[in-house]
Write a protein that binds this DNA or RNA. Sequence first.
DNA 1: TTCTATCCATAGACAATCTATATATTCATG
DNA 2: CATGAATATATAGATTGTCTATGGATAGAA
Lengths: 112, 112
Amino acid sequence: MARKPELLPGTLDMLILKTLTRAPLHGYGIALSIKRTSDDVLTVEEGSLYPALQRLLLQERVKGEWKMTDTGRRARFYTLTAAGRKQLKLELSQFDQMIAAIGRVLRDPQEA
Amino acid sequence: MARKPELLPGTLDMLILKTLTRAPLHGYGIALSIKRTSDDVLTVEEGSLYPALQRLLLQERVKGEWKMTDTGRRARFYTLTAAGRKQLKLELSQFDQMIAAIGRVLRDPQEA
DNA sequence: TTCTATCCATAGACAATCTATATATTCATG
DNA sequence: CATGAATATATAGATTGTCTATGGATAGAA
């Protein structure tokens, strides 16, 4: 793991996809949303975010359209595709399963 | 994330350290313990386990001693050090914080 | 005019995990 | 006694994901 992990590795795609279920957003907006919703615990660096979005585009889990923001800047807005919704559902259930499993290990009684 | 993730990346050291709070164990025993305690959800591959144990040795979070198992094979038994206990405590609290933050993002209401 | 916030993106470094491989021993089964 | 499964350690190499660092550009506030 990186020295100062801002994210739990392996969870970024899921967080992005989930964020897009609310509404289409541009990259910067996704990062802000995750930061705010997580009460500043999760910070998505640009160097993580944009490669992740490229991956998701290639996998056709999101689609991107260049538009203008309210503030008059051009930005690429991402929308979930059907495949993206399906993938999110899958990742969500795998994540729950993992967390539950880790929980069992961490709560396992000490010192017989 | 790997195609078929057997672990949540970034959690292996924590799982190993936690497993060693119960009793000193050798590598193979640690892997078995995690597998069983997690009801077969978490599988620690050898290629992940032994490098992780080397890291933990170098960082002096565990110490290792060659001994004989009950079944008469030589194996390296790992014991938590004070630094290892401290590190476990830290990782546990960071993990809880991350999971809680991820939970807030994932439970964030849909479609305004 | 300068600074901050908004916006995109890539290159390169680094860390963690996995696949594959190698070695060796014990024990059960045929 | 041969074979294979389970027990046990370890490394090399590939892959992936994230981060640091960098570059560019515009809008609006000070």
